[in-house]
Amino acid sequence: MPKQPMYQQIAEDLRKKIDTGQYAQGSQLPTELDLRGEYGASRNTVRDAIKRLTGLGLIETRPGQGTFVTLQVEPFVTVLTGDPRSGDGGDEGASYLSQVSAEHRTPFETLPRVTVQTSHEGITRRLRVPPDMQVVSRHQERFIDSVPWSLQTSFYPFDFITRGATRLLMPEDIAGGTVKYLAETIGLVQVGYRDWVTVRSPDENEQQFFRISHDATVFEIFRTAFDQHKTPMRVTVTVFPTDRNQFIVNVGDELPAPQYGDDGFHPA
């Protein structure tokens, strides 16, 4: 049997070290110069080995930081559909917390970071308000089992505040969720929502928060919620890294719950 090329030998040796935990998940590999010295190889040979492992999804290169062992995370399955009146599937945080807890995993989300701003066209267009109208922004970072899972920002028309929904300005969780709160305070009943799902490259902030490389991809979901008058009442933008998220959309009434395989995250 012909001998493997040098770069394949290096890649295989590094792969074994990753599999055995010598290079733990999330840890940094030796520099290119150190690898050249360790294996007595040229720069191009080491780079070819790195490319091979990158193609296998075992490592990732972060510009200005180095090369790291990829964090292998069990994907979290999110059911996008739910009862909009109760908030399940339609609220900014309640559905996430209940779904994660149901899978016996540990959820955590930061307190909202609240700002009042003149938002960009993509938000005002979905809210169907004038482009110069101010909105309330509530931004949160969300984790599962201490792993960064999503970034979420909800936008509300500022006139909700003048109508009495002042807690939207508070950097705190709203007990029962905003769907229930808006119904109780200003009489807006959420009757439905529309999800617009896109895939794009992460920006610099997302790369750092999710610990992903610049050439990774993220889902971006724009959820527009509608009140009983079919008027947009909220736009929630959630960014999910594609390496740790999967989604289910149910169509029809009273469908059976998903059945998961032995690996725990391939529903049927």
Rank of each mutant, 00 (worst) to 15 (best):
F219G: 02
L56A: 07
H229Q: 10
Q190K: 12
V191K: 05
V69I: 05
P171E: 03
D253C: 04
S137Q: 15
I161P: 12
Q246K: 14
G89F: 05
P112H: 04
A175R: 12
F210E: 03
L182D: 01
D13G: 14
M133P: 14
T224Q: 09
D159A: 00
D173Q: 12
I10L: 02
E254L: 14
I186H: 04
F219S: 06
P2R: 11
A11Q: 01
S98G: 08
G93D: 13
V147H: 13
L97H: 10
T124M: 08
R142N: 14
Y193E: 13
T54P: 01
L71H: 13
L188A: 01
V179E: 01
S27P: 01
V179W: 01
V179L: 02
F76G: 06
G176L: 03
R62E: 09
G87H: 03
W196Q: 10
G89I: 02
F160V: 06
S42R: 13
Y260E: 13
S119F: 05
I123P: 06
G64M: 07
G187N: 11
R85P: 01
V100E: 07
F155C: 02
F108Q: 03
S86N: 10
F158K: 05
G37C: 04
V129G: 07
G55I: 06
R163K: 09
P258E: 14
D263R: 13
V235N: 05
A102H: 15
G187R: 09
P112E: 01
T242P: 12
S27L: 06
T78N: 14
A257H: 10
P232R: 05
R223E: 09
G164T: 00
G21Y: 01
L35P: 00
Q25F: 04
K16A: 11
Q9Y: 06
R194S: 14
Y96P: 03
L169P: 06
G90D: 02
V147C: 10
M170C: 12
L29M: 12
Q208M: 05
F108Y: 13
Q246F: 07
T198R: 13
G176F: 02
E38N: 10
G55Y: 07
L188P: 05
R138A: 05
V147R: 09
R244I: 11
R52L: 14
P256K: 04
L33I: 08
Q8V: 07
H104C: 01
T153Y: 06
P63N: 04
P148Q: 09
Y156L: 04
T81L: 13
I10R: 02
P30S: 05
G26D: 11
S154Q: 12
D132C: 00
R62K: 13
Q72F: 05
E32P: 03
L111Y: 14
Q190L: 08
R163S: 10
Y23N: 02
R105W: 11
G89T: 02
F226L: 15
G82F: 09
D13V: 06
T153R: 00
I174E: 03
E38S: 10
T166E: 12
N250F: 11
T166P: 08
E32S: 01
P241C: 08
S213G: 13
D227A: 00
N205T: 13
V251K: 09
